[in-house]
Design a protein around this nucleic acid. Structure first.
Length: 350
RNA sequence: AAGGAAAGGGCAGUA
């Protein structure tokens, strides 16, 4: 029974929900008890994929089976709703928790704080943190990091940095995610040199920067036009034997395209193909947007067709940007042709 | 060792 749930969890974490649901059926047929751990595992897997209707269905089935929900399954469900942006449902879950008199634990509080931060409700987040302190629960690095991220994204740099300082002063653990949040936050506000300074101090904390940390800083340099610095970081990633992922490649590609160097961007694209990365929506969008900005309309159009063929649909913003470039630089005939095509495919409105 | 929380990549027009 433990072994079944372990395997189920492995499938869910790998995003293989098809196998996971197959397993559940097997378990039922084999007469294996489905307990709250099994339900939570499956529900969490569905939430991770954004399949909230099905997640809620699992929850209802569990209630019908007479199993009482605990903090863990509520945390998973709440997190799923917040991630999916279904705030009304998230609030409903919170009310349900209150009605049932379930005392939130550290992770449930953490999810609440994170949700409020993603909604820019920082005062409320602070209030929740105070509440948990009253109940004798001390916020951990997950919670501080979520709060710091919230302050950065709300343009409150001073407050965000103060949170980091508070973490240091209070001996709260600093994780790689914390560092990434700090570095990304500073970069996004144009404080790239400060970010680079913190980056240099990561190893002093006994941490190894991962691909996300590198990408955050690399992106920062790219955005302020220091493409050589960005490239240097990229080479450092390779030297360390870390494999750059889609985000890392896309960030550097975007950096090159923003300074008009579509040749280097193309080299990176080729490299992505070579190492077997799937060009995803973000990558296509950066490439098409950047190449059209560089006046490379033919190549942009090739990628546009390619992504549509793969079933990766460009959003309206990208289509309109490309179209405008066609009208600006290309022939009128081609532009009209593209416009008709995009309308026909339902990618832009008439 | 059966389940739950934090971080990084693209943005036209319009106001």
């Amino acid at each position: 029974e433990y072994a079944y749930t372990s395997l189920l969890d492995a499938y869910c974490k790998a995003g293989n929900l098809t196998e996971a649901t197959k397993m559940i059926k097997e378990m039922l047929q084999a007469g294996i008890n489905i307990n709250i751990v099994t339900y939570t595992t499956l529900l969490n897997g569905l939430c991770a994929e954004g399949r909230m209707r099905e997640a809620k269905e699992v929850f209802k089935v569990m209630l019908k089976a007479g199993v009482a929900p605990d903090q863990q399954i509520y945390t998973a469900l709440l997190h799923g709703y917040i991630k999916a942006g279904e705030m009304e449902n998230a609030i409903e879950i919170l009310n349900e928790i209150k009605e049932k008199n379930i005392k939130p634990d550290l992770l449930l509080y953490g999810t609440m704080v994170w949700g409020l931060c993603t909604e820019n409700k920082l005062e409320e987040a602070e209030r929740v943190i105070n509440e948990m302190k009253v109940f004798g629960l001390n916020p951990n690095h997950f919670i501080y990091t979520a709060l710091m991220d919230g302050y950065f994204k709300a343009d409150k740099v001073k407050e965000a940095v103060a949170i980091f300082q508070e973490m240091c002063d209070h001996g709260i653990e600093i994780s790689v995610v914390t560092c990434c949040t700090l570095i990304d936050g500073l970069c996004k506000k144009g404080l790239v040199l400060e970010a680079a300074n913190y980056f240099g101090r990561i190893v002093d904390l006994g941490l190894e920067p991962n691909i996300a940390v590198y990408t955050a800083l690399m992106d920062g340099f790219g955005k302020i036009g220091c493409i050589e610095k960005a490239k240097k970081l990229f080479d450092e990633i390779l030297d360390k034997g870390i494999s750059p992922d889609n985000a890392a490649y896309t960030s550097l590609i975007d950096g090159y395209l923003k300074c008009g160097n579509h040749k280097e961007a193309m080299k990176l694209y080729n490299r992505m193909i070579e190492v077997g990365l799937e060009i995803d929506l973000h990558a296509y969008t950066s490439l098409i947007w950047g190449f059209s900005q560089c006046g490379e309309l033919q190549q942009a159009k090739i990628w546009l067709d390619e992504m549509i063929e793969k079933g990766i649909l460009p959003d309206e913003i990208l289509c309109i940007s490309l179209l405008r470039k066609y009208y600006e630089l290309g022939s009128e005939v081609e532009a009209v042709e593209l416009q008709n095509e995009l309308v026909k495919r339902g990618l832009i409105k008439q």
